[in-house]
Write a protein that binds this DNA or RNA. Structure first.
Lengths: 216, 216
DNA sequence: GTTTCAATCCCCGAATTCGGGGATTTTTTT
DNA sequence: AAAAAAATCCCCGAATTCGGGGATTGAAAC
């Protein structure tokens, strides 16, 4: 059976060493490389040809997330497992979007790392429980803003929608009057009605609401 | 210690029974209810008050995904663990977007179900490995189509971004001055600089541009 | 057949926004 | 040390927006 070749990026020497030792306890694992920084990561990986990369985030020179991006661009078949102490939303999602296939926290890993690597190799995406929850929550948020947005009905008349569209596009009342061939005062009337219906009191609020709730 | 109360929705009687039996082997678990369909799920759950719901997808009358939506609307604190044989993308993502906090496949569950339920209760999101991979891949896809509007750099200073954010949120200059604890005239100065940098001449255009190009 | 509503137009006065100056202080860059 | 940029504050005058009235017409709803 082909061994699973693994490369490590972590600026902490003792962590790298202890991971290397841990990997040695599994005979199907093979340490392909161990690096303290990611400045030459693509070249490093082209040379050592691993199946899987363990990537820390905080490193001198370039951070691990940017490295993930570069690696997946150059070598898309390599699976990358983030392995870090950070669990703030930004770093988690940036890592995933950059192309990581798993994200585990460093604290409770030791015994489980072997299991996580195997899971990754089998097509899974190992994540620490709190990370997995963040990911699902994020997906729900995304779908909520991306999806329907049809429950709002402010009962704008068609003319009012015309006017609102012009407002959103940045036209002044005077320009709207010209655009729609009506008088300035008519535009004013429509605008007043729109504000009333949308429960806003200014152009900026109207534009924000119109865009946020896809009224135009 | 408070027991973990669990309700089961599955149209297959023998599966419900064997899950119930499995749960009994853990003394911290308590079966709150067991139902063959979801037609009255919200009422059922209001009565039996579980912490966690195990939800099958294929059921007579209403499917499990729609039930998840209703349950999360009415009882948002209940955590729902999908437990099904389906792993097609649509059902997986629909379930998650409907509000499920975990998604496990029925085949290899028996021994692990107890572990998954505990993980869910502790704030994790248990997923079968293949499901977790699908979720991450989906997130990467979404970010890929959502992203590529970052080529714009109007070089707004951080204070200008503060002001722009306030503007987008519908605050008047006077309110912004108050919010940021600076004088009205300072707000004016920032606004002028913002307009110059964004190449706009009015609030509406600024809000539109800020939202469209995700500057805030 | 009256009422309701959308669409059009008008006036006044107050508040807000905008453009075009200028100035000082602090921080950052060079 | 000098230059550039960021952040703060001020004034004037003009343009625009806003709130609160009102009015007319025509079409749709009751």
């Amino acid at each position: 059976m082909m061994p699973i070749r693994i490369a490590i990026f972590d600026d902490n020497n003792s962590i790298r060493d202890s991971i290397a030792m841990l990997l040695q306890t599994e005979k199907e694992f093979e340490l392909a490389g161990s690096f303290a920084h990611v400045l030459d990561c693509v070249d490093d990986l082209k040379t050592c040809k691993p199946d899987i990369v363990l990537m820390d985030i905080e490193m001198p020179g370039m951070n691990g997330i940017e490295a993930v991006r570069l690696i997946k661009q150059a070598l898309p078949d390599i699976q990358i497992l983030m392995q870090t102490v950070f669990e703030d939303d930004d770093r988690v999602f940036d890592s995933i979007c950059a192309g990581a296939s798993g994200y585990i926290l460093k604290n409770q890993l030791n015994s489980r790392l072997i299991h996580f690597i195997k899971e990754l190799k089998l097509g899974g995406s190992p994540m620490s429980p709190s990370i997995a929850r963040k990911v699902l929550t994020k997906m729900q948020e995304i779908s909520a803003v991306l999806k329907p947005e049809a429950d709002n009905d402010y009962k704008l008349s068609s003319r009012e929608k015309d006017v609102l569209t012009c407002i959103v596009n940045g036209l002044s009342h005077k320009m709207i009057a010209d655009e729609l061939n009506i008088s300035y005062e008519t535009v004013r009337s429509h605008v007043k009605k729109i504000y009333e219906k949308l429960h806003v009191v200014s152009i900026s609020q109207a534009v924000f609401k119109a865009l946020k709730e896809k009224l135009v």
